[in-house]
Computed example of a mutant assay.
Amino acid sequence: MKNKYINKADGTKELYLYGDVLSDWEAEWQDVCGVTGGVSTKTVREVLQDSPDAELTIHINSDGGDVSAGIAIANLIRSRAGKTVGVVDGWAASIASVIFMACDELHMPENTFLMVHKPSAYVGYGDAADLRAYADTLDAMQEGIEKNYQARAAEGVTADDIHQDVEAETWYTAEEAAKKYTISVDPLQAQMVACSTRNFAHMPLTVKALKAELAAPKKEEKVNPVQHFDKEKAYISAVLKKGELLR
């Protein structure tokens, strides 16, 4: 789904952040490949600059993505003058959970999920010193990410509680998330939609099944496995060579 920005009649705004969190560089490559969707720092910044004092509801359905881009987006949301209301429409996983928690008010319909885990990196090349430096960077990023969660922790939840959840890759139901963080559980059922085909080690079966169902080609669709192959191959090669910190 392509991200949507809606101006409502009552003066409030709605922003839908669906799909992978992308660096601006990745987003540019996706444009070259003709791929729609995804969330980039540039597009979010442009939206937040419109009516900065108005109340903005941010709907999130994302597996996460580029750590640096996600942190930048969270900081943009946090520094906005107007009130922001975060709503999980399916799941907010990985760095998307940090974006969600940057909102002033947090809501999860009772059939949605929140996931926290350790950041990881795709390393295309490097010697032992390079790999140690990557590990140090990931540790520093994890510490910063956990501070974001700690700022929204429910009463009685310690920094160590959150650290253990991050270390283990924890998927919370809405009810479980509300016990750890200052999140309101809404009785209304969100209509969940798949945001990508990426899988995680401890992903709930409900999420896996939905991804598989919505990712399957429809009968009337013609699937061309070599479509845009050259562009996609160049994009993947460039990402690996760049060695960006991603999911």
Rank of each mutant, 00 (worst) to 15 (best):
1 M>C: 09
3 N>A: 10
3 N>S: 12
5 Y>L: 04
6 I>F: 08
6 I>M: 09
10 D>S: 10
11 G>M: 01
11 G>D: 00
13 K>C: 06
13 K>T: 03
17 L>Q: 02
18 Y>D: 04
18 Y>S: 03
21 V>M: 03
28 E>G: 08
31 D>L: 05
31 D>Y: 04
33 C>W: 02
34 G>N: 05
35 V>T: 08
36 T>L: 00
38 G>T: 11
38 G>Q: 10
39 V>E: 06
40 S>A: 12
40 S>V: 04
42 K>W: 13
43 T>D: 12
50 D>K: 00
53 D>C: 07
60 I>S: 14
60 I>R: 04
65 G>P: 00
67 V>N: 06
67 V>C: 09
68 S>D: 04
68 S>N: 01
69 A>Q: 07
69 A>L: 12
70 G>C: 00
71 I>L: 14
71 I>S: 13
72 A>K: 11
74 A>C: 07
75 N>T: 06
76 L>Y: 10
77 I>P: 06
81 A>R: 02
85 V>P: 01
85 V>W: 04
92 A>W: 01
92 A>T: 07
94 S>E: 07
94 S>P: 02
96 A>D: 02
98 V>Y: 05
99 I>W: 02
103 C>Y: 05
104 D>A: 10
105 E>M: 04
107 H>T: 04
109 P>N: 08
112 T>P: 00
112 T>S: 11
113 F>P: 02
115 M>Q: 11
119 P>F: 10
120 S>Q: 15
122 Y>A: 12
123 V>H: 13
124 G>W: 12
124 G>D: 15
124 G>V: 15
126 G>W: 12
126 G>N: 07
127 D>M: 14
128 A>D: 15
132 R>I: 08
136 D>Q: 07
137 T>I: 12
140 A>N: 14
141 M>Q: 03
143 E>Y: 07
145 I>N: 10
148 N>C: 09
149 Y>W: 09
149 Y>Q: 06
149 Y>V: 01
150 Q>E: 14
151 A>D: 13
154 A>M: 03
158 T>I: 08
158 T>E: 07
159 A>W: 02
160 D>N: 00
160 D>A: 00
163 H>K: 06
167 E>K: 04
170 T>R: 08
171 W>V: 05
171 W>I: 08
171 W>T: 05
174 A>Y: 00
174 A>C: 01
174 A>F: 01
175 E>M: 07
176 E>H: 11
176 E>Y: 12
176 E>G: 10
179 K>D: 13
180 K>A: 11
182 T>S: 10
184 S>F: 01
185 V>H: 07
188 L>G: 10
189 Q>D: 15
190 A>I: 02
191 Q>H: 11
192 M>T: 09
193 V>G: 13
196 S>P: 01
198 R>A: 13
202 H>V: 15
203 M>V: 11
204 P>W: 00
205 L>F: 07
205 L>E: 12
206 T>R: 09
208 K>D: 05
210 L>D: 01
211 K>M: 03
214 L>E: 14
215 A>E: 04
216 A>F: 05
219 K>P: 00
221 E>W: 10
221 E>C: 11
224 N>F: 14
227 Q>K: 02
233 K>F: 14
234 A>N: 14
239 V>F: 05
240 L>N: 03
242 K>V: 01
245 L>R: 11
245 L>Y: 15
245 L>I: 15
247 R>V: 12
